[in-house]
Design a protein around this nucleic acid. Sequence first.
DNA 1: GAGTGGTCTAGACCACGAG
DNA 2: TCGTGGTCTAGACCACTCA
Lengths: 240, 240
Amino acid sequence: MIRPVPSRRHAIAEDLRHQISSGHFKAGERLPSEAQLATRYTVSTSTLRSALALLQGEGLVEKIHGSGNFVRHPLSRITYTGGAGTLATGTTLSAPLRMTARTTTIEAPSHLTTLLNVPTRSLLTEVIFSTHEGRTPHSLAHIYVPHDLAPGHSPAAPPLPDQIAVRLAEVQERVSARLPTQEEATALRISPSLAVLSLTRVATDAAGRVVEAALLVLPGDRADALFTTRLVTEERGSKE
Amino acid sequence: MIRPVPSRRHAIAEDLRHQISSGHFKAGERLPSEAQLATRYTVSTSTLRSALALLQGEGLVEKIHGSGNFVRHPLSRITYTGGAGTLATGTTLSAPLRMTARTTTIEAPSHLTTLLNVPTRSLLTEVIFSTHEGRTPHSLAHIYVPHDLAPGHSPAAPPLPDQIAVRLAEVQERVSARLPTQEEATALRISPSLAVLSLTRVATDAAGRVVEAALLVLPGDRADALFTTRLVTEERGSKE
DNA sequence: GAGTGGTCTAGACCACGAG
DNA sequence: TCGTGGTCTAGACCACTCA
């Protein structure tokens, strides 16, 4: 096996990890300042900071500039359920869920024209969406619907999927893992070194027309996506 | 809009990014040493290293201790196709694919007994699997099959899925994003700060028995997963 | 303004790779 | 052995938060 070389920052990170999981530092609590911790562990501040960076990447610690390092709240993992065509429903939540949405109409930028297969400069209804559990954000979504398919929506209108779900014929979801952009990290209140799940969902109707495209971003430490495929059993004769 | 604060390391990273994408530094090539680059940009080595760390997280640069920083080969993105019940087939590859597999028989450890829903200490056939495109690894897989379902496999036996696919009734795939473990980073030759897609696939037969469990790890910069759901159209009369 | 984290420096010393 | 990256130090100075 590998001898991971007990570097100081790993040892410190390990110690802090234990102190967090053992409840010595509680959720939401502020850690001692970096200077204090550096003194306590007799290392330089840079070394101490690199130890904290490890915990940040694991989602255990949140740094707030000018204010301190905080223990993140325990991750109540949510599940995005694929195939259903609805966002953030089907999640298993243990705390009150809050949702905010902002609806606007935009001219389709180039990356969306190809995704939605619509002409350049055609109008789209854009819903920018986020879900929160308490104060901590859970997901970030940009949903696009061709404007003629979503008539009469006021800015405060609720999300669309339900209204068009009956017409859907196919949902295609592309999933990738990456680090968040700076904007995403800020919006989700995660470290730039914490991986996110990025989902691109395209729903088409029976005629092959794209009725909805959604770009979702979920923090990797508290969300995953679940896809269930029921296969047609190969019993000859009875189909389904 | 946000003022991203032009820190030196971001400026340097941006410059190197351009030099890589413009072909000034070519794929596989070694960059000048960190000391040389630090001198060229008139920054300290630590600052230069933090600039390189950004590129590492994007998968643009691979560091090899004692040897140098190398431009990674352009990412030929592969696609894992969900629902099919087979690994790494259905990928769109632009270069020769190599596969290595190692088959052993093990006693189910606890985390697998729950996943496969088998008794403690029951025997599993384990296939450890990896795919390469040229010299760069693409995926890492651990596949587990109850031993009685996979009889007579020699250590050099090919992967199993094809042989049992006809019996499958349901495939469930759970996807998450995270940073790789140290072992995974080494095996995939990626930076510890490059996100990976982690898939857990459980296949069950018509009787509800788990016939295969697979743990897959794919580097986030060159792989994503695709799930297609065809919905039963709601033509009244037939109640789904 | 006091205290926090963020960036950066100019080194030292260690560990690894290849000749 | 020598050149490479990896870890770490002991600071300086800046940017942010909050009373």
